[in-house]
Design a protein around this nucleic acid. Structure first.
Length: 216
DNA sequence: CTCCTGCCCA
DNA sequence: TGGGCCGGAG
């Protein structure tokens, strides 16, 4: 079967099995922006603790966070891990938005997709996954988000080689699927779900997986 | 102990 | 390409 058929079939199977995932978990675009940085290589439950700490200190807004000292931010986001690194990264990100968009997150989100993405990638600490997650889940830009789960699920089903970079994997999806932000939103969330529950790094549960035999 | 919706640096 | 960043849950 062709890759494009399989990619569509995988979506259908996951959606029938799990239903809509209602991503991104977050109340405002700014909260999603912050969450995208905090969740880098980090379990979401730890990110929730960090975000709640920021909320409790009234620091979950552009102005409050930019005014705060990095040490104070680091203290709040401690539960999310890499806290010194991430406090700096949040600062770098806000600085870019201040410089390029007058401090308006909406300015970034309503910019051309390619320019917004380039600006995000120019920030130290923002790589392709974080940039695409911000643009898709905050701003509805049609960018498919690739992550470790995507790589694992699709290489295990032989759709991409084991050694395959972000761009290659992203192009596979974006050349196959219509540029529909809602579809990209749901598909990525479903991949994360099946990656956590079945396509686990160790001891994957292939026999019971909803994707079993999908490539045949 | 391993893993978690990465990314930077040498 | 490998190591460092890092707390919390299982």
């Amino acid at each position: 079967m062709s890759n494009s058929i399989i990619i569509n079939t995988i979506y259908q199977r996951l959606y029938s099995y799990y239903g809509p995932q209602n991503w991104w978990p977050g109340e405002t675009p700014f909260e999603i922006l912050v969450g995208a940085v905090l969740t880098q290589n980090t379990n979401w439950s730890n990110v929730v603790k960090a975000i709640n700490n920021l909320k409790a200190r009234q620091m979950l807004s552009f102005d409050a966070l930019q005014a705060a000292a990095v040490e104070e931010i680091a203290e709040c986001i401690r539960p999310s891990g890499y806290y010194n690194l991430k406090a700096q990264r949040l600062g770098n990100l806000l600085q870019m938005i201040a410089r390029e968009y007058g401090g308006e997150l909406d300015g970034l989100l309503s910019d051309q997709t390619s320019r917004a993405r380039d600006n995000l990638l120019s920030v130290k600490g923002i790589g392709p996954e974080t940039a695409d997650a911000i643009l898709l889940y905050c701003g509805n830009h049609p960018l498919f988000v690739v992550d470790a789960y995507t790589h694992r699920v699709f290489s295990r089903h032989s759709l991409v080689p084991e050694e395959c970079d972000y761009n290659e994997l992203q192009e596979l999806f974006m050349d196959t699927l219509h540029p529909d932000p809602q579809l990209y939103n749901e598909y990525h969330a479903l991949i994360v779900r099946v990656g956590k529950e079945y396509c686990k790094k160790s001891n994957p549960l292939c026999e019971q997986c909803p994707l079993m035999g999908v490539e045949e």
